[in-house]
């Protein structure tokens, strides 16, 4: 199985501080992967690089069957190529309704003139309703997103990601601030999603990672320290030393 995303040898330096140091990473087209590591290990910077927010000093990031290099593309182009990202803090457009938020995220031509002419058809409304019920917001469609609770905003954002139909999903600490039941729901959803697409989850919560039951990549000081099942990496002395040992 060839990789969907292939990151090789990237390095990035901020004012002399090496945030990412010759990092390589690979993920298949339908795979769930957890990325863990202590603070400052470079998890967020890694996601920033894949989504185009930060330019690495060296290395390459190839995506898809045709191995497109993501490094030359803008954030929007990368997103259109099929990379979705969920931020740690829920970022939804609070001044707009849940339906508008989802409608905006629906996969469609993103060019301004196409958007200007675009008017919702019944199937679009149906898709929005379907997505809303999937994330438990079916009753809240006309409400302004700003009025939702924190957890509901998380769900709305996940719904927007689903609407984008990405092939690679980068999720930053999805379980933060969720109730136990919501975590369960999230776990199920992520595992489901990973059946049809690649999902990378960055997480601190070991319990949550264990529940995902997937391959784990441990980052430390901007490089991969260990990779394998959770049990495998937690037995790795180096990992215990830098990460688990502290906790």
């Amino acid at each position: 199985m060839s990789a969907l995303l292939e990151v090789s040898g990237i390095s990035v330096t901020f004012d002399g501080f090496r945030a990412i140091n010759n990092l390589s990473f690979e993920i298949g087209p339908a795979e769930l992967r957890a990325v863990i590591g202590p603070n400052g290990a470079g998890k967020t910077t890694f996601m920033d690089i894949v989504t185009g927010k930060t330019r690495p000093d060296s290395g390459k990031v190839l995506f898809g069957e045709r191995s497109v290099n993501l490094l030359g593309m803008t954030e929007a182009q990368i997103a259109r190529a099929g990379v979705g990202r969920k931020f740690q803090r829920p970022t939804v457009f609070e001044d707009q309704s849940v339906a508008e938020n989802l409608m905006m995220a629906l996969k469609a031509d993103r060019g301004p003139f196409a958007v200007l002419r675009w008017r919702p058809r019944p199937e679009h409304h149906a898709r929005v309703a379907e997505l809303a019920s999937e994330v438990g917001l079916a009753d809240h469609l006309p409400r302004k997103a700003g009025e939702l609770s924190h957890g509901q905003k998380q769900w709305l954002e996940i719904g927007m990601l689903l609407a984008q139909e990405p092939r690679l999903l980068l999720v930053d600490e999805p379980a933060a601030g969720m109730t136990l039941a919501e975590r369960e729901h999230t776990t199920r959803l992520l595992v489901d999603l990973a059946k049809t697409r690649a999902v990378v989850v960055v997480e601190h919560d070991m319990d949550f990672v264990r529940r995902l039951a997937c391959k784990v990549t441990v980052l430390h000081e901007g490089a991969v320290l260990a990779e394998g099942s959770l049990d495998h990496v937690t037995r790795n002395p180096a990992v215990i030393e830098v990460y688990l040992g502290r906790g």
Partner: peptide, 8 residues
């Protein structure tokens, strides 16, 4: 200002 100090 570069890097994280600049909020990047």
């Amino acid at each position: 200002l570069k890097g994280r100090a600049a909020g990047d």
